[in-house]
Amino acid sequence: MLKMFITSIKNLFRKPVTQLYPYEKYEPFDGYRGKISWEKGKCTFCMKCGRACTSGAIKILIYSGETKEWVWNPIQCIYCGECVRSCPFGALIQEKYYASPITKGEKLDWSEIEKKAGRLEDRWRRQLRDRRGKRKSE
């Protein structure tokens, strides 16, 4: 009991273990699971990351013509890093810093994006099936 008393007195004067966040910047350890960043030049839009993603937070949109876009939903992401490991070209990098909070204007209309990407995925699957069918018939 006495020891507990001494410890609590000591604790009064010790430095706090936690950080005073807004005044003191938090420096994460190396290898912290932060936001995913995408490098456009390296990406070939192979969709491997989208299929590896556990929470379905990565979609690829193809607009008319050849403009393609990689979309990532930071709210749905569970930051497991599976997409980064699945990428064969190193186009995805998991950064040390976490994603900044999202304001109202930046929020993605995810259900709309999912619908669009779903149509594209269907088309892509159909093409794949056709190709396989051709190969078999040959």
Binding site: P28, F29, G31, Y32, R33, I78, Y79, C80, G81
Partner: peptide
């Protein structure tokens, strides 16, 4: 955190 990049949810 140092080892696995997360405090509780190691993944």
């Amino acid at each position: 955190d140092m080892l696995f990049g997360n405090r509780v949810q190691y993944d």
